[in-house]
Amino acid sequence: MSFSHLLIVTPGFAANEEDTTSVPAVQQFLLSFRKIFPDIVLSLISFHYPCRNDSYDWHGIDVHTIGNKHAGGLKKLFSFYRFLKIGKKINSKVPIDGVLCFWLTDSTLAAKLLARKLNVPSFVWMHGQDAKADNKYVRIVRPSMEHLAAISEPQSRLFERNFGQRPGHIVSNGVDPCIFPPLNAGNRQTDLLSVGSLIPLKQQHLFIELVRDLRDTGYLHIKAMLVGEGKLQQELEDLVKKYGLEDMLCLKGRLQHNEVLNEMNNARILVHPSSYEGHSTVMLEALYSGCQVVSFLPAGQGSIDNFTMCEDFEEMKRVSRKLLSAHNSCERIEVNRIETSVLQVKRIFDQLKLK
């Protein structure tokens, strides 16, 4: 059975082609999908972000935004109505063969309703905090496990622990080697790098505490960089000033995705202090960029070269000191390619279409 049109549904997406920082993992998946399957039409509906009601072209993909902005009550009902109307309009031009949902949220509920009306399969690929016990949309959407994928084994286990069922698939995130700069195997100017939103979940205050500890234990000339923006930015800036780290730690703010990859290519160690991830794209990219990676969370299944998972902050400090004192060679570590994920998702839809 032929497959000619896949509708993508996501809570947020890039505002334009220049916006490479919004859900970069989704962006890379779609670009890879288009490259591998150029004859399959891709359309996309974004439920919340950008916060506008609009349609535009993104690298040959028709993008439609609802601009729901997490509205409640009647506004949310109207957003669902608008979503279904747009979905039917998209289908009238080229019949939709399947609906792929990123994350399990309110946008997934809208997607499920549309897929049911169009009598096509829908598939949910969880990416972040979807598996946590407080996700009310798991019980509202009630996805069948055959139509649900976790992004990692830990996320799959967490979902089963919280909701009593195990997702039928694990589709890992991956990297696209084509977008990386040539490997810098020589002198890297940044000793410690951290990349992530400045929100409580990412625990970037621990990165600042780590730099302070290293300075106080004799590492007086290290250069550290924190890339990201968020509601804790002022609080973190104040912490840097409080500890007198202005000459050692640079807060770069938001960077475009290619700029982030360039910074990784110039860094020795990526520190990832986040308390939760579905499957961190940042860690995969840092490993492929030749960094040593230190984290509280796994980067993938089994043992991974140049990666150290720490039990607590004390171990993270010890590991960081050891790595700074060593002379590690820079080599690319590939955990998973995004094209592998693309092919896996396509196979799943082929199977669903046959049923």
Results as ranks from 00 to 15, higher is better:
Leu354Phe: 09
Glu246Lys: 04
Lys353Leu: 14
Arg318Cys: 03
Leu352Arg: 05
Thr10Arg: 05
Lys241Leu: 08
Leu226Lys: 03
Phe313Cys: 05
Arg161Pro: 10
Ile333Glu: 01
Met264Tyr: 08
Cys250Glu: 14
Ala14Ser: 09
Ile170Asn: 01
Leu77Lys: 14
Cys291Lys: 00
Ile40Trp: 14
Ser22Gly: 11
Ala267Gln: 06
Ile179Cys: 00
Ser79Trp: 14
Thr20Tyr: 14
Lys132Ile: 09
Leu74Met: 12
Ile140His: 10
Leu270Asp: 05
Ser289Val: 05
Tyr243Met: 08
Leu193Gly: 08
Glu311Cys: 01
Ala15Gly: 04
His169Trp: 03
Ala326Ser: 11
Ile333Met: 14
Asn328Met: 09
Asp176Thr: 09
Tyr288Leu: 04
Val227Tyr: 08
Ile45Pro: 04
Gly186Asn: 05
Ile66Met: 05
Asp238Val: 09
Glu311Trp: 02
Trp125Pro: 05
Gln165Thr: 03
Phe80Cys: 09
Ile90Gln: 09
Asn184Phe: 02
Phe33Asp: 10
Cys101Ala: 14
Asn53Val: 07
Cys310Lys: 03
Phe159Cys: 06
Pro200Glu: 12
Thr190Gln: 11
Leu201Lys: 12
Glu311Ser: 12
Pro200Asp: 06
Thr340Gly: 12
His205Val: 08
Leu239Val: 10
Lys88Ala: 06
Lys93Pro: 06
His279Met: 10
Ser152Trp: 02
Cys291Gln: 03
Gly196Ala: 08
Glu331Asn: 07
Glu339His: 01
Lys355Asn: 07
Ile66Asp: 03
Val271Cys: 00
Arg215Cys: 09
Val120Asn: 01
Glu235Ala: 13
Arg139Gln: 09
Glu277Arg: 12
Arg332Asn: 10
Glu277Phe: 05
Asp213Lys: 03
Lys202Cys: 07
Ser55Arg: 15
Ser156Pro: 08
Asn162Trp: 08
His169Leu: 12
Ser274Cys: 10
Leu84Arg: 13
Ser107Lys: 11
Ser275Gly: 12
Val63Cys: 07
Met309Ile: 02
Pro121Met: 03
Arg337Ile: 05
Leu104Gly: 01
Asn16Trp: 07
Phe13Ala: 14
Trp58Phe: 15
Asn266Glu: 10
Gly290Trp: 03
Lys69His: 11
Ala224Ile: 01
Arg52Leu: 13
Leu352Ile: 04
Asn306Ile: 03
Lys317Asn: 06
Ser32Glu: 15
Arg268Pro: 02
Pro24Glu: 01
Ile8Leu: 13
Ser46Phe: 08
Ile170Arg: 15
His169Gln: 07
Val23Glu: 06
Gln234Cys: 05
Ile90Glu: 05
Gly218Trp: 02
Asp130His: 03
Pro181Phe: 13
Leu30His: 02
Leu7His: 11
Gly98Ser: 11
Ala133Lys: 15
Leu352His: 00
Val175Ala: 07
Ser329Asp: 14
Ala299His: 00
